[in-house]
């Protein structure tokens, strides 16, 4: 683990654009990335997608995680496998399924045609919206499991107490459950964010060349353009962003929500 990382650091500092036989020391690959508007806009876009997908997963994952935590073991029996299927199933197979659903002759287009909402198949692929949708589906299990494990530790008596005090459902949710579940929500969001900003298979297959993300650029530089020093520099920038994000969320979780953890 450590040795490949060190190799990566060294390669990213080579003073050349070739993958092999690099020599010398130079920061120019970092300068090239950070000084170019195009690369920075891709970086910004990637981080934005990461945030949107994380927020979406919180909103969609919370009801599922909460209901799973409050369910009997029997009810969970067939629901848990459904939740972890996208996580354990090969990513390419999952994305391939989405290609069938979203393609021109696919499920969604047929449905819309059948309803008479559209006259001709619409292009659903190659848009940032569908890329984000597919990534959300792929990474949602992490959020659901993370929220489920936290909610399972919240004593249901607390919610009953709130109800006895005539707090409505929404008030109980907002004032009791959400603050207590916050560490789980943050942990899930961290994972989803990391996975989204480093994704490259989904953007490439679903987004084509129209949706540029940092992960797919690293992939291109490494395996297509064969500019390993530049690819290495980009992946270390990605790694740095991930570390800063994780550290930030951990801090937030410790300082703001530590008193709520029993």
């Amino acid at each position: 683990m450590l040795v490949p990382l060190l190799t990566l650091v060294r390669t990213s500092l080579y003073d050349s654009d070739k993958s092999f036989g690099g020599a010398g020391w130079s920061l120019r690959h970092y300068v090239r990335f950070l000084g170019d508007g195009f690369y920075l806009s891709v970086l910004g876009q990637t981080l934005l997608y990461g945030l949107i997908v994380s927020v979406f997963c919180v909103v969609v994952g919370f009801p599922l995680g909460y209901s799973l935590a409050r369910m009997s073991a029997r009810g969970r029996r067939w629901r848990i496998p459904m939740v972890i299927l996208p996580l354990t199933l090969s990513l390419v197979v999952n994305v391939f399924g989405w290609l069938i659903i979203l393609g021109r002759g696919g499920l969604v287009n047929k449905f819309l045609l059948g309803l008479g909402l559209i006259d001709a198949p619409v292009q659903l692929l190659f848009s940032s919206f569908t890329v984000m949708l597919v990534m959300a589906q792929t990474f949602l299990p992490f959020m659901v499991l993370s929220i489920m494990s936290v909610v399972a530790q919240i004593d249901p008596a607390l919610e009953q107490a709130a109800a006895n005090l005539r707090a409505g459902r929404w008030t109980t949710l907002r004032r009791v459950v959400l603050p207590l579940a916050m560490p789980g929500i943050l942990a899930g969001s961290t994972l989803v964010f990391i996975l989204t900003v480093s994704a490259f298979i989904t953007p490439r297959l679903i987004g084509g060349t129209r949706v540029q993300m940092l992960g797919s650029m690293i992939y291109e530089q490494t395996l297509v353009t064969l500019n390993w020093p530049f690819g290495g520099a980009m992946s270390l920038i990605l790694l740095a962003i991930v570390f800063v994000f994780v550290a930030g969320v951990n801090r937030l979780s410790r300082t703001r929500f530590s008193e709520t953890r029993s």
Partner: peptide, 8 residues
């Protein structure tokens, strides 16, 4: 969550 697998 299950849709892609079912469709495949």
């Amino acid at each position: 969550l299950a849709l892609p697998a079912i469709v495949v």
